[in-house]
Amino acid sequence: MLSASVRAEDLHPSLWRASQLAHGRTRVVDTGYPALSAELPGGGWPLGALIDLLVQQPGIGEMRLLQPALSALGERPVALLQPPQVPNGLGLGYIGLPLERLLHIKAPKTGDALWSAEQILRAGSCGALIFWASSAQSASLRRLHLAAQSAETLFVMVRPLTVTQEASPALLRMALRPSAHGLTVDIVKRRGPLRVEPLSISLQPTPVLLSRHARLSRRPFAETAARSLPTEVAA
């Protein structure tokens, strides 16, 4: 048993006491929501690691939830891989994500999307990668988590709520459900004790961010197809 004066993370950064949130050397970016940040190891979204956001359906508010962190990353590009609908340039600009920062990546096959995600993570050229994935094998998740560790990219996979019980190498897993004023957030996995009670996160109302009828500004949106790299929803 560790003495009270010895911190588990001092012995190894991957160790922590089960009764406490981990305080290792992983860099984080503030979530922008004090109640949520207080529940996360290090006080924010971990960088250089896989984060799982599990949703009832894409577009329930994941982009608005991530917006403060994306803004905090400065001018570094944000890659949107396989978003459920076309990114709406006007809506994204409204929340402070101008088109010149965004890279929209289309992938005709799951394998192409996974390959694209790995290349982006290993290159480390993007401040964030948000990857909407309907399915992914455990081996693929482990490979992406390992690739994420090669840089300090904010790497978020948005996946179906139905995979909650499946194993994942993600350092952080959260289940998101829509509520009257934003989202109800259940922390499924974190480096620390379980949290039984869900969090209520208020989100600022915005124009539609992802839509099959999205209107882009006349400035060309940065869009690329996979393998070329070195329902209306309000996300």
Rank of each mutant, 00 (worst) to 15 (best):
K109Q: 14
V78W: 08
L114R: 08
R159K: 09
F155A: 07
I130F: 08
R76H: 06
L154D: 06
L121Y: 09
F155C: 06
D112C: 13
D52E: 12
A136E: 06
A136H: 07
V158D: 14
T162E: 13
L103V: 04
R143T: 03
G124C: 06
Q82A: 12
L154E: 08
S135C: 14
T164I: 13
H145P: 05
F131V: 01
G74V: 10
H145M: 05
S138E: 13
P87E: 12
R101Y: 05
S71M: 05
L161I: 07
D52P: 08
L121I: 11
L81Q: 01
G124Y: 11
P87N: 15
L92P: 10
S71L: 09
A147P: 06
R173C: 10
G124D: 10
R142I: 06
A117S: 10
L154Y: 05
F131H: 09
P68V: 01
G93S: 09
R101N: 03
I105C: 09
M174H: 01
E75L: 05
R76K: 12
L146K: 09
V78G: 04
W115H: 03
M174T: 10
R64Q: 15
G127D: 04
K109I: 10
L54S: 02
P160S: 15
L70K: 08
L146N: 09
T110C: 06
Q82G: 04
P169N: 14
E166D: 15
R64W: 02
E166A: 15
G93F: 00
A128L: 01
S150L: 10
Q67R: 11
L97P: 03
L121A: 15
L54T: 01
A151N: 08
V86A: 13
V163D: 03
Q137K: 07
Q119W: 01
L81K: 02
P98E: 12
A133E: 11
G59T: 00
D52S: 04
Q119V: 02
A139H: 13
A170E: 01
S150Y: 08
L172R: 02
L141C: 14
K109Y: 11
L103P: 00
A167N: 03
C126H: 15
A139D: 11
A136I: 08
K109C: 10
W115V: 00
G124L: 07
L66A: 13
T153E: 07
G127I: 00
V78M: 08
D112R: 05
I120M: 15
A123Y: 03
A69Q: 02
I60A: 10
W115D: 00
H104C: 11
C126G: 08
P77G: 07
A170L: 03
E118H: 11
G127L: 01
L53A: 11
Y94H: 15
L66M: 13
P160D: 15
Q67H: 05
L129K: 06
G91C: 05
P84S: 15
Q165C: 03
E152T: 12
S168C: 05
S134E: 09
G74Y: 14
D112Q: 12
S135V: 14
A170M: 02
E62F: 00
S150K: 10
Q56N: 14
L54R: 10
P84E: 15
P108S: 12
L53W: 09
L114D: 06
R76L: 12
